[in-house]
């Protein structure tokens, strides 16, 4: 058991945990903002797959087009990353317009988008992995800077920026206000639609980034990547204390939630716990976290 603990607490393993929660963490920042407005996004897993696939296809398209012209090697990388972000943002615009302008329930809109994006990922890739990506792009997932993997740096940056925006800027305050009392925010002159739309677009950009990072880590875009991520992300956000009703929570909580679940997964894997049992344990932990939050609130009022 002490050997196990040693393995667990080694710096290497902490980085390993950080790396393994990178994608969920990046998605968690956007999901926190969305849930703070009182919304939800069920499509993030599919969005990760679709933006990864489109990024890989874009890299190939630019590469083959440039092969004739003698190209700088950076172009395919920029194209791939840009394509991933664009796809993510497009998904965000779609959801944002439907939710903010047409006042459709976010749950249903993103449920539809979940199916649409997954289908498109398979369509565009013909159901196959798209590999042979430019080395510069793969660096996003596999590179190491000052001994720390690039995805971990990116995740840390996302949490840092996300925290700053939500805690220190007017836009962040308005996100809380819209989730806390939309009518009050509207009457106070806040552009509630714009805030909601902007939040979904920002979330979409993060989905695109997560898709690029995952694809780069795998060295290939796989259309069935990200299956079930939406549940992992929502679990991290909720375990981190953000209220699904909106207006309450923070990205730091989400970071704690993601670390908590990632650590648990990792520890269970290191301890070689039966895979069937692992799922049960993770579910029970989420349940305890949420119930604990409830009881704490009840105790106060």
């Amino acid at each position: 058991m002490s050997a196990l603990a040693g393995a667990f607490f080694s710096l290497g393993n902490l980085l390993n945990v950080a790396l393994s929660i990178a994608v969920i963490g990046i998605l968690g920042v956007g999901m926190t903002a969305v849930i703070l407005t009182g919304g939800i996004d069920l499509s993030v897993g599919s969005g990760v797959a679709l933006s990864g696939v489109v990024a890989a296809l874009a890299a190939h398209a630019v590469d083959s087009g440039a092969a004739t012209g003698g190209s700088p090697s950076l172009l395919p990388v920029v194209a791939a990353l840009g394509a991933a972000l664009a796809v993510g943002a497009a998904g965000g615009v779609f959801t944002g317009v439907a939710v903010a302008r047409l006042r459709a329930p976010a749950f249903l809109v993103t449920l539809a988008l979940l199916s649409i994006e997954r289908g498109l990922a398979f369509l565009f890739s013909s159901g196959q992995a798209v590999s042979d990506l430019p080395a510069g792009f793969n660096w996003l997932g596999q590179g190491i800077v000052f001994g720390v993997p690039v995805p971990v740096w990116l995740t840390a940056a996302c949490f840092g920026v996300g925290w700053f925006v939500l805690a220190r800027t007017t836009w962040g305050r308005w996100i809380y206000a819209v989730g806390g009392n939309e009518a009050a925010a509207w009457l106070a002159g806040i552009d509630t639609r714009g805030v909601t739309l902007g939040t979904y677009v920002a979330n979409g950009l993060l989905v695109g980034l997560a898709g690029a990072v995952l694809t780069a880590r795998l060295g290939a875009a796989v259309p069935n990547a990200g299956l079930g991520y939406e549940l992992d992300v929502i679990a991290a956000v909720v375990v981190g204390g953000t209220a699904l009703t909106g207006g309450r929570g923070s990205v730091l909580g989400t970071l704690a939630g993601a670390v908590c679940i990632g650590t648990l997964d990792n520890a269970l894997n290191l301890a070689n716990v039966d895979p069937y049992l692992q799922r049960v344990v993770v579910g029970v932990v989420i349940l305890l976290a949420v119930l604990g939050e409830r009881l704490r609130h009840r105790g106060r009022t």
């Binding site: 305050r173 809380y176 009392n181 009457l187 309450r248």
Partner: peptide
Amino acid sequence: SALMPRDSVRV
């Protein structure tokens, strides 16, 4: 229609 009840006096 006016307050965000769980937010602070400051907010």
